[in-house]
């Protein structure tokens, strides 16, 4: 158990530009490990990182697991499937169990918005909490790896124009990205049908548009969000065909982008719905880079939260309440 003050990474809104750049720069150093014969560092030896997943996400879990293991931490995977969590054990009781096991950090994916926040601040545990996606709220490490990928591809973020397209209303990836990219000086434009645009989007640090085509020639990067097919049944849009026609990224639209522009997707993709196979497999697509960068960024987050006597990033602990 770390002795010093404890911090968490719950939202990109909590990251200053300096914090975010520190994470990206640290990740850049970790990225170089990939070329070495031994990809492991002894830094977090003896520390325990728990991956607590209330929602299936093999990709995110493996990414965090790899990151923790490359830093020599002990990793415990605690998944809702096949454990007492699925039998109705409360988040609180699970948290108390993890506390008793001496977890130094809990990486939590939760279907409820605020799940990570609650785990961090309800006074149940003393570990650092890393939000690996909570409901329709935030997914800060995804935004960090997107920012890392953009910086690597575009040479920087200041003044770069990033267009985020799709189901913004239900997307934690969009929420985290808008805040982080704004903090890092990029200009974000959200594109969605009005039904999938957040109610109070005017107050967000970005601009918005209901049409994709006019935005494309001015975009340095386009981030396509995954569309849940069940949204159609909830009348957010009439048909998949209409959605794809108005908001999908396909070859014709890709041709309207500037030469240097990239197309991103957080995965998993619905090929043929929000992104065509041709685009997904093109040289502009950063999809596989995003996955690789995810490990480096998550190593950086774990190192900066757990590596020293006190964390270098994240939100101050609010202390135990009531």
């Amino acid at each position: 158990m770390s002795a010093g003050p404890r911090r968490h990474l719950l939202s990109t809104a909590d990251l200053s530009a300096e914090d975010a750049m520190l994470i990206l720069d640290t990740a850049a150093e970790f990225a170089r490990l990939a070329d070495r014969p031994i990809k492991k560092l002894p830094t977090l030896r003896g520390r325990t990182v728990v991956n607590l997943f209330y929602e299936d996400s093999t990709r995110t879990r493996i990414s965090f697991e790899t990151a923790a293991k490359r830093l020599s931490a002990d990793v415990i995977n605690f998944s809702a499937k096949g454990s007492s969590v699925s039998k109705g054990e409360s988040l609180k009781d699970t948290a108390l169990t993890l506390e008793a096991m001496g977890a130094d950090a809990v990486v939590v994916r939760h279907w409820a918005s605020g799940g990570a926040h609650r785990l961090a601040h309800a006074g149940w545990i003393r570990s650092a909490v890393v939000n690996a996606g909570d409901g329709t709220h935030e997914h800060p490490t995804q935004a960090l790896l997107d920012a890392y990928t953009l910086r690597a591809r575009l040479g920087g973020l200041e003044g770069r124009r990033v267009t985020v397209v799709g189901d913004v209303l239900h997307s934690r990836v969009a929420r985290s990205n808008v805040r982080l990219l704004a903090t890092l000086g990029a200009e974000v434009t959200l594109v969605a049908p009005p039904t999938l645009m957040p109610f109070g989007v005017e107050g967000w640090p970005c601009s918005s548009s209901y049409a994709l085509d006019p935005v494309l020639p001015k975009s340095d990067a386009v981030m396509m969000l995954r569309v849940q097919r069940e949204r159609m049944d909830q009348a957010f849009f009439p048909t998949e065909r209409e959605y794809s026609r108005r908001y999908g990224m396909h070859a014709d639209r890709m041709a309207q982008l500037p030469e240097h522009a990239v197309v991103m997707h957080p995965g998993p993709m619905n090929r043929g719905l929000e992104i065509s196979a041709e685009v997904a497999d093109s040289a502009r697509s950063t999809v596989t880079e995003q996955v690789a960068n995810g490990v480096s960024v998550r190593m950086a987050v774990l190192y900066l939260l757990l590596g020293g006597s006190e964390p270098a990033i994240g939100t101050e602990d609010e202390g135990e309440r009531r």
Binding site: S2, Y303, L304, L305, A312
Partner: peptide, 20 residues
């Protein structure tokens, strides 16, 4: 860069990595 191998990592705040 030897930061990640130091034996006093936990005695001091997490620090920026040097370049290898």
């Amino acid at each position: 860069d030897v930061t990640m191998y130091r034996d006093d990592l936990r005695l001091r705040p997490a620090r920026t990595l040097g370049h290898t």
